[in-house]
């Protein structure tokens, strides 16, 4: 069973990663001015504070818009491109898929593209989705607290979004109204933001100027499903509940009904554990 799941996820990752390597399906929309890397810690299970996970997220800020994506998926893209160039046999690549770093977050967020909105790209299994949200999602309350964080003079601001209250620290030293995830609208870059329960924490660990000519690419895959935030959430939730059968749909097969049962139990236990999404409502 595990083998089947691994194999399927491997094949999936590979095909997905493969698609991503095709620069033809991307459109350059802006020139990058600043590359910010955030250390992102999150707690998938609200009842277990030990299960903290970490990932690095990258925010690429351009003149007009910005792109937010996980560091690991950027690495996977470049690895695939590298394999492609070197002509390394896919048998070798597939036999050892673990060289590709995994990410829990397949989403990419483009702020101010289209103008005044943000586009959120995400996936449910193989299916690519995109939905738009207005840019001015956040009503910020600026407080008088100031602090020096990550080398910047920061000031505190608070907001609430989809069931969580956030405390953000922004700096006017970087004059972009930008931040990790969907967060934006402060008169300076968000250096640190966390919800009050500390379930989702973003901390800037580097802000560097990318090499001149670094472009911000928007994916333009023809097979992307345009949806709304609600539509995407429903699709994602359905898939989470129905995971085993969908694996079977994709060609997976369980030799033994007991294996299937066990796989299902495991999937359900996992669904129970991942009960703490960043957007609660």
């Amino acid at each position: 069973m595990k083998k089947l799941l691994t194999t399927l996820s491997i094949l999936l990752t590979f095909s997905m990663a493969y698609c991503q390597s095709e620069v033809e399906n991307h459109e350059a929309i802006d020139m990058a001015k600043l590359r910010c890397t955030y250390q992102f810690s999150y707690q998938m299970d609200s009842t277990n504070s030990k299960r903290l996970r970490h990932e690095k997220m990258v925010l690429l800020i351009g003149e007009k818009c910005s792109k937010y994506k996980s560091y690991n998926s950027i690495i996977t893209d470049s690895l695939i491109r590298d394999f492609d160039k070197r002509g390394i046999p896919p048998q070798i690549v597939v036999s050892d898929m673990s060289i590709f770093p995994k990410t829990k977050f397949n989403h990419q967020i483009f702020k101010n593209d289209p103008k005044g909105s943000m586009s959120v790209f995400d996936r449910v299994f193989k299916d690519k989705f995109v939905y738009n949200e207005p840019l001015d999602l956040f009503k910020w309350e600026v407080s008088s607290d100031t602090a020096k964080i990550s080398g910047y003079n920061c000031q505190k601001a608070t907001t609430s979004y989809r069931g969580r209250n956030y405390e953000a620290w922004f700096t006017t030293e970087i004059p972009f109204s930008e931040g990790p995830y969907k967060f934006n609208g402060l008169p300076g870059l968000i250096v640190k933001i966390a919800d009050t329960k500390k379930h989702y924490v973003f901390e800037l660990i580097s802000a560097t100027k990318p090499p001149v000519g670094t472009l911000i690419y928007l994916p333009t895959y023809p097979k992307t499903i345009c949806s709304s935030r609600e539509g995407f959430r429903k699709a994602k939730n359905d898939a989470k509940q129905d995971v085993i059968r969908r694996l079977e749909d994709m060609g997976g097969h369980f030799e033994n009904p007991e294996d299937r049962k066990r796989a299902k139990e495991r999937a359900m236990a996992k669904a129970r554990r991942t009960n703490n999404p960043i957007e609660l409502m």
Partner: peptide
Amino acid sequence: ELKEVRIKA
């Protein structure tokens, strides 16, 4: 000039 930072994890 933007103020760059690099912080060690």
